[in-house]
Design a protein around this nucleic acid. Structure first.
Length: 423
DNA sequence: TCTGGGGTCCTAGGACCC
DNA sequence: TCTGGGGTCCTAGGACCC
């Protein structure tokens, strides 16, 4: 029987930062979200201080200072690069790999005559550590849901970092110790409703009739019940699916009133979203823009709006996307408000080869020129990140506050490579 | 003063068709 | 008094994930 393995990098962003700062091993380290707003990764030492995930930094600043927590602004080019290294190492063990997020992958392992499943997991864990320097934990089980749960338990098993929920007797025991809210797929709303029905533990949920759960919740919750009992409902998605929507958005520290700056930020988002669109070779025919004032500021008036438009012709040309998005912005922005967040959503995708109704007025030569231009811009930006942009984005990112604790781009910028001193 | 960003799936309900 | 039935497509919003 195949066994699912969930390989999850421990405190991933913190591990990435420590890789080039060995002096930080054993010390308290935290990584912050965009705008240095919230804590999004914590070392064990920070968790021990009782600082929760997604806590706003300003709320725990006294604690951070008192315990000399080393802070880092998020450095996604570093984390993305190290993630690729971890995933390629995993791909060396099995072709059956699903990259689930930047720091997690599902694998299927087969029982080998020479090596037990647990021994295979130990080899994987050791190899990832040796090749990349990133520590991982591995959860094993007959379904993805159980592998996820096993991973959670593995994180507590400090010595081995591996846990297997394949044995039904062990499983019953651990399901009884797990609260429903800690099951993958059961969020806070569903957990609350389940608790009202006296379904408190994962074991309680596993005992329910899936059809009854489906009638009260959704088909997703019914699947979870089956998965907890060892029946596979969720399979391995080895080929990443084409995205159905692409979002690019940011929040602005202190908010923005100036329409001109909002338009510059928006143009930047359009370029980034267009790049992602072209990477998966899709054409978009719907653009949605949203702008929001500060959700926690009760003293200034709120204004949250969104608007969409359908393009007469599907496109992957960033210039068209920028022009249309700016029209939407003019419609939406109200004078006098301070906007805290703005973003663009591209959707209703097509593939360039999909047959579609031709437009009588389309200039084919222009279309071909546009494709070449976008390809050239993308090629240059891939080699030299952010080198080319549109004038609409402005010459400076004045809408973006500079990060305070950014580490060097150790692995993606020549001038920021780590220095090794020979003594 | 200071609270992230990017996704997926599911369901209900409206609009529309014959 | 009495106003069909069956279907598709689209959108918004909720819930969840990392």
């Amino acid at each position: 029987m195949p066994c699912f393995a969930l390989v999850d990098c421990n405190n991933f962003y913190v591990s990435c930062e420590r890789l080039f700062r060995p002096d930080l091993h054993g010390k308290a380290v935290a990584v912050l979200s965009n705008n240095d707003g919230c804590i999004i990764a914590r070392s064990e030492e920070v968790k021990a201080l009782g600082i929760q995930m997604a806590t706003p930094v300003h709320q725990v600043m006294p604690l951070i200072k008192q315990h000399r927590v080393q802070l880092f602004s998020s450095n996604y080019s570093l984390y993305g690069d190290l993630s690729n290294r971890v995933m390629s190492t995993l791909a060396g063990f099995t072709p059956h790999l699903e990259i689930y997020s930047i720091d997690e992958s599902f694998l299927t392992l087969q029982t080998l005559p020479t090596q037990s499943i647990k021994a295979q997991a130990q080899t994987i864990r050791r190899t990832v550590q040796r090749h990349t320097g990133i520590p991982v934990s591995i959860g094993l089980g007959p379904t993805k849901t159980l592998a996820k749960l096993a991973n959670k338990i593995a994180k507590q098993e400090k010595t081995t970092g591996i846990f297997n929920l394949s044995c039904p007797i062990d499983r019953a025991c651990y399901l009884k110790l797990t609260a429903v809210k800690n099951i993958w797929g059961i969020g806070s709303k569903t957990a609350k409703k389940l608790q009202a029905l006296k379904i408190i533990t994962a074991w309680d949920l596993a005992q329910q009739d899936p059809e009854w759960i489906r009638s009260l919740f959704t088909v997703t919750a019914a699947r979870t019940v089956r998965e907890l009992n060892g029946f596979t409902c969720l399979t391995l998605d080895e080929v990443p699916a084409t995205k159905q929507q692409i979002i690019c958005s940011r929040s602005f520290k202190g908010g923005l009133r100036d329409h001109r700056l909002l338009a510059q930020a928006l143009s930047h988002f359009c370029l980034r979203a267009g790049e992602k669109l072209r990477i998966q070779n899709s054409l978009t025919s719907r653009i949605t823009l949203f702008i929001n004032t500060h959700p926690f500021d009760k003293n200034t008036p709120a204004d949250n709006r969104s608007a969409s438009l359908k393009l007469p012709q599907a496109t992957q040309d960033s210039r068209v996307i920028i022009a249309q998005a700016k029209k939407l912005l003019t419609q939406l922005v109200q004078p006098g408000y301070r906007y805290h967040q703005c973003g663009i959503v591209l959707s209703h995708f097509d593939h360039p080869t999909t047959p579609r109704q031709a437009d009588l007025f389309t200039d084919n030569a222009h279309q071909s020129h546009a494709r070449k231009l976008m390809k050239t811009i993308d090629t240059i930006n891939q080699r030299f990140p952010n080198r080319l942009t549109f004038a609409a984005s402005g010459l400076q990112t004045a809408w973006q506050a500079p990060p305070q604790w950014l580490s060097p781009h150790y692995t993606t910028q020549w001038q920021e490579l780590a220095h090794v001193k020979c003594i």
